[in-house]
Structure formats: structure tokens, C-alpha cells
């Protein structure tokens, strides 16, 4: 590839009224990268994802995704799979797991046309990939939080993306399910050659699974391997206060940095 950056942001600023949500963001995410985007609540993580998705136009700066501005991707829009925050869903909506996953195909099917047998097959294959096929006929509201999240990933996979963006995917999922969840992401990345960006404020769990971490709090502090980032100096700068870190290894231990 001549340009290995799947996502490239140059001096990106976003303001909500007078308040800057993102300041001078420069970020390049390479093809095949598995990135954890971390930062405290209100640090602009979701804003950054919305900018990358083209749902929000930056007030300043340049964004390219697969070499084009995100709102001018046209057919390439299908290359992006997005898993939104769980709290956004309407879990009472009358829709089956199969229908939700099939929605991941709609962008590719195009206006006016109906899903074909091939689309159905891809939807079921995507459910297989997240081990949820047996739930295809269930109503979405009958699943547990972790299962719903898997269905949302299956929906993103059904669009056959090259880039997967996940916003707080493990929120409301217990720790062991969370570990399994990141393992699943790792497997999918290997199998489908995906570039994955996971937004989370749970530093400990994500850092033991991803290859790179980026720390955001309005500005981007660092974009490096978890080992480099987890030197507490950086985290303290990002969070601006005491950092409590429940490290996630064979022996769980707690790292508490004192704040002066």
C-alpha cells in the first residue's frame, strides 16, 4: 500500500459552542493496527469517533479515512464498521437478532432493493463469527448485555468492513466476559485483516489486549505501545489526577499513583 494510514487526522479541532472538545489532534492509524483509545469521561473520545465516521464535521483540520474525507466516502463507507455505545440502543424495538445483523448489509444492498439469500448467508456467517448464530430468531431485548454487544459486532461485520470502530463496547459487561470479548476482537482482527479502534475508559483491561494505546483528553497525549503508555507519568498527565490502575495480568494487582 502506498498510504498505510487507514485513518489520518491533521490538526483537528471540534468546538461545542465556545468549549473545545478536541484540540489540535494529529493521529495516524495504520492498516492492521489494534488501537485502544483511552481517556477520562468527557475527554472527547466519542467526539473523535464521530469525526472519523463523518457524523460530525471538525471546525478545523483535515480528516481522511481510506484516503478520502469521511463524508465523501461514497461506496467506501461500507469499509467502516461501527459498534455504538450500548446505552444508545432501543431494546424494545420489535426486531430479531437476524434482522439487526442484516441491517449491516443495507448500505451495500442500496436503496429500494431487498436483501438476497446471499445477504442472509453473510448475516448468519457474521453471527457465527461472534458465536451467536443460535440466537438468530430471538428478540434483541431478550439477550444479555454481552450478547447484545456481540450482535452489534456481528452487524458491523456483516458489512464486510476493513475498519472496525467500537465505542465503549464492554460497558455493562462483567470482567470475565470483557476478557473474552477482547479475545474475540483479536481473533476477528487476525481472521479478517481488520484495523480496530476500541474506545474505552477502562485502561487496565484494554491495555492487556491491544497493540497500541492512544490517550486523549481534548488533546492527544501519546500514541504508542501499552508498555510505553503505562508509565504512570503519561496517564497522570492525561487524567490530571490520581490514577488507580487495576492491572490485568496473571496476578491481579493494584497500582496507585499518589497525586500531589
Amino acid at each position: 500500500m502506498t498510504n498505510p494510514s487507514v485513518i489520518s487526522l491533521r490538526d483537528v479541532w471540534v468546538f461545542y459552542g465556545e468549549t473545545p472538545a478536541l484540540k489540535a489532534i494529529d493521529l495516524d492509524i495504520e492498516d492492521g493496527e489494534f488501537l485502544g483509545l483511552i481517556g477520562p469521561n468527557g475527554s472527547g473520545k466519542t467526539t473523535l469517533i464521530k469525526v472519523i465516521l463523518g457524523l460530525l464535521k471538525p471546525d478545523r483540520g483535515k480528516v481522511t479515512v481510506f484516503g478520502a474525507p469521511p463524508d465523501r466516502l461514497g461506496r467506501s463507507r461500507g469499509l467502516i464498521g461501527y459498534v455504538p455505545q450500548r446505552s444508545q440502543g432501543d431494546w424494545t424495538f420489535p426486531v430479531s437478532v437476524r434482522d439487526v445483523v442484516l441491517m449491516g448489509r443495507y448500505g451495500r444492498i442500496g436503496l429500494f432493493r431487498r436483501p438476497t439469500a446471499a445477504d442472509e448467508a453473510i448475516a448468519l456467517k457474521s453471527l457465527d463469527a461472534v458465536q451467536m448464530r443460535e440466537y438468530a430468531g430471538r428478540h434483541l431485548g431478550q439477550l444479555s448485555g454481552g450478547q447484545q454487544q456481540r450482535v452489534m459486532i456481528a452487524r458491523a461485520l456483516a458489512g464486510e468492513p476493513l475498519l472496525l470502530l467500537l465505542d465503549e463496547p464492554a460497558a455493562g459487561v462483567d470482567i470475565s466476559a470483557e476478557d473474552q470479548f477482547y479475545e474475540l476482537l483479536g481473533e476477528l482482527k487476525e481472521k479478517h485483516g481488520l484495523t480496530i479502534v476500541v474506545v474505552t475508559h477502562d485502561i487496565a483491561v484494554v491495555s492487556s489486549h491491544v497493540e497500541k494505546l492512544a490517550c486523549l483528553n481534548q488533546t492527544l497525549y501519546i500514541h504508542a505501545s501499552p508498555e510505553e503508555v503505562l508509565t504512570a507519568g503519561t496517564l497522570q498527565k492525561v487524567y490530571g489526577c490520581e490514577v488507580e490502575l487495576l492491572a490485568h495480568g496473571r496476578i491481579p494487582h493494584r497500582v496507585v499513583e499518589e497525586h500531589d
Binding site: 457524523l55 434482522d99 441491517m103 448500505g107
Partner: peptide
């Protein structure tokens, strides 16, 4: 209309 009623933001991301 089905997709948009269920999840408007996702529908927008899908290019609808």
C-alpha cells in the same frame, strides 16, 4: 424506514 426507525445514527453510518 425499518433501519432508520430502529437506529438512526447507525443507518447514517451505513450510508442511508
Amino acid at each position: 424506514f425499518f433501519f432508520m426507525s430502529f437506529d438512526e445514527e447507525m443507518a447514517a453510518v451505513s450510508g442511508l
